[in-house]
Structures are given as C-alpha cells and as structure tokens.
C-alpha cells in the first residue's frame, strides 16, 4: 500500500474508537437513552483502554508483529519500514487522555526482533469532568538480542489537567533500548496542569534508572524554582541502554547550557534536557541522539 499504512498484523480491521462511550465535549456525545456499549466500561468517568504490541523475529531475521491490538483511543498502525525493524505508529483516535481516563500500552519485543514505535501526534493531557486524574501506563519488555526504539511525540500538560504517567522498561541482558520522553508544560503561553511521571528502566533484573518528576499547580513546592525547572516549559529524557556500554559507556558531557549526557550505573546513558519550548527541546535531543550514532 502506498499510504504508508498496513493493516493490523492479524489482518483484522483496526478497532474503532466509537465503540467506547466518551462523555466530554470534543468527543461524540453519549446517547440520551441508556444503552449497552460494545465494551463495558469499568468506570463511567473515563475511558479505559489497553493497547498491545508484540514483536518477534521470524526465521529469516525479519520482525513480524503477531500482536498489534489497539483499543479505543489507542489505535496502532504498522507503518512502512526501510530497514529490518518493524515500525508501529500509535495513532491517537481521540483527544486526551482526559481526567478519569486510564490508558495503557504494552510493547513486548522478543529475542532478536527489532521494533520502532512512534506516535502520529502529541499526547495532550486535558481536564476531565469530575476532577480526577488520568493515568497512562507504558510497559516495555526487550529480550536478549532485541532492540526497541520507543520515540513517541511530546506529552503536553494542559491547564487544569492532572495526569500520572508511568513508564517501565525491562531489558534482558543483551537487549537494546532507545527511549525518549518529552514533557511540555502547557500549550503556548498557557500555564500547565499537574503532571506526575515516573520512569523506571531495568537491565538484567537490576534497576538502572528510577526517576520521578512532578510539576504544575499542586506539585511539591519548588518545582519551578532554581533547582528543578527554573521557568523552563519543556523537559526531556533520552535513555539509551546498550550492552556495549558495559565496557565503554559514552562519557559525561554538557550538551549546551541546559542539557547533559551522563553514564548510568550500568550499561546505559541518560540525556536530560530543559528548553523554553517543545521545538528547541526536540532539537537538543535529536542532536544528542545523532551524536551517538
């Protein structure tokens, strides 16, 4: 196909978001009469959706996707790949997450497989109707000899929203991971919502990185002060886990005034960058990634 999109790996049609019953402006209105939704919703306050990606190496060394299950607002598309890795794009089929939503994405990359995951647009945390937090949980597993490049677009925390993001990556000995996270505090000229994120990366069963960031109104005080963000509205992390770093990790280095690369206590490095906005943040992280290639 020339549109760059293949069908979902199992040949079934992609899940349509309309099977859920959202109830917030900007989404389709719920029916006036009570009706039975196609998927029962655990909570009337928000959307619960869980998307799964499973990548495996076939006998010819290519990567196949025996599991490519989107759900609700989390639609998945296999996109055209140029190299041996499979590419998947997460296509947000609704705005959100909104307060009360619980979204989860799992990606499991089997031994020897290579998977690259991106997203079609930024994830935008929006306020819900009942003032509860939204949750977004990402679970990544990378087997030995496998590689996962997890490079989604930015997460934008909109005024009045509350989002808790957890990202946990488990890399087996001999696996490789490239993971990027970017948090943007508010749309242009807007104050941010409340954002909690926790990023945990394990290698060979040992925790390599465990990092939380809380920012926005309601976060512990000092979050925007001179020790933490100092007015920067974009903050990003790039984690690279590579067994080759066991013997010779790239050394610590400053990457401009507000970004640094540092070797972790194991076969990985972390690039931390702060910038005034999303565009400048991406530029710093892209340069850091290309500088290592």
């Amino acid at each position: 196909m020339d549109d760059g999109f293949d069908d979902a790996g199992d040949g079934t049609s992609p899940v349509t978001p309309q099977t859920l019953t959202p109830s917030t402006p900007g989404r389709p209105s719920p029916p006036d009469e009570p009706s039975t939704p196609a998927h029962p919703l655990p909570s009337p306050a928000g959307v619960h959706a869980h998307a799964r990606i499973g990548a495996r190496a076939d006998p010819h060394g290519r990567t196949v996707l025996p599991v490519l299950d989107g759900e609700g607002p989390l639609a998945l598309r296999r996109t055209r790949a140029t190299g041996p890795a499979a590419h998947v794009t997460l296509v947000g089929a609704m705005s959100g997450p909104l307060g009360g939503d619980r979204l989860a994405v799992d990606a499991d990359v089997g031994a020897g497989a290579r998977l690259s995951v991106g997203s079609a647009a930024a994830t935008i945390a929006l306020p819900g109707q009942d003032g509860t937090a939204a949750h977004y949980d990402v679970r990544l597993t990378v087997a030995t000899g496998a590689e996962l490049r997890w490079l989604p677009e930015q997460l934008i925390s909109v005024r009045g929203s509350e989002l808790r993001v957890t990202t946990r990556a488990d890399v087996e000995a001999g696996g490789r991971l490239v993971l990027r996270e970017e948090q943007i505090l508010g749309r242009t000229g807007e104050s941010p919502g409340l954002l909690h994120s926790r990023l945990t990366v394990r290698y060979a069963g040992r925790t390599l990185l465990d990092q939380e960031l809380s920012c926005g109104p309601g976060a512990p005080s000092g979050w925007d002060g001179p020790a933490v963000l100092a007015g920067h509205r974009a903050v990003g992390q790039l984690v690279i886990v590579d067994p080759e770093f066991t013997t010779e990790p790239p050394p610590a280095a400053m990457l401009g005034e507000h970004a640094a690369r540092t070797p972790l206590a194991g076969p990985g490095i972390l690039i931390t960058a702060l910038a005034p906005d999303a565009l400048q943040l991406r530029r710093v992280l892209d340069e850091a990634l290309h500088g290592l290639a």
Binding site: T200, A227, V228, V235, H258, A260, R261
Partner: peptide, 19 residues
Amino acid sequence: DALPAASAPLLEVGAEGHA
C-alpha cells in the same frame, strides 16, 4: 520500589557542568 524517586533536572544537568 516503594521509596520515592523525585528528581530535579537542573540539579542533574548543573552537576555535570560543575564537575
């Protein structure tokens, strides 16, 4: 894992520069 892991990005970046 029950222990907090709160981070301060500017302290981390600043420490590498300072060193």
